[in-house]
């Protein structure tokens, strides 16, 4: 009897899995992931202009698009003409200790934690 119950529960979980896998969401704006090899997660949700308007960041492009001289941050200059991947490699380098994946995560999540707003869990950005 109890064996049957456990089997039913397992079956139920697998069924939910199948339903989840085949339900599709509507169109959402996501990040370009071409800088990564063999991506493991769905591209992160990020609608650049809408995001920055909602978060009140239109005047401070350099929060994300920063400029460095060696290892020191250059205040008051911004780098929106460069990709993050131009300076951040997939793994640590001598010039840059912050790999690309960590660069995104640190930048995006630290502000969401500080402002107590916005997504901080994997699946809230990497939406299936």
């Amino acid at each position: 009897m109890k064996t049957k119950l456990l089997l039913i529960i397992m079956g139920f979980i697998l069924l939910l899995g199948a339903i989840g896998a085949y339900s599709q969401d509507e169109e959402i704006v996501v990040m370009d992931t071409s800088a990564f090899e063999n991506t493991q997660r769905p591209a992160s949700v990020f609608d650049h202009d809408i995001h920055n308007e909602m978060a009140g960041l239109e005047d401070d492009c350099a929060i994300c698009h920063h400029v460095y001289d060696g290892k020191t941050l250059v205040e008051g200059e911004s780098s929106e003409d460069s990709y993050c991947a131009d300076c951040h490699s997939l793994s640590k380098t001598a010039e840059n200790d912050v790999p690309l994946r960590a660069a995104y995560h640190k930048r995006c999540k630290s502000c969401h934690f500080e402002t107590n707003k916005g997504p901080v869990l994997c699946g809230e950005c990497h939406k299936n």
Binding site: I13, G17, G20, L121, G123, E124, K127, N128
Partner: peptide, 18 residues
């Protein structure tokens, strides 16, 4: 393990699951 599995697939109650 169960909640990790459910959260990874984002089936339902994502935040609660995590």
């Amino acid at each position: 393990f169960l909640t990790g599995f459910l959260a990874y697939h984002q089936f339902f109650f994502y935040r609660t699951m995590v």
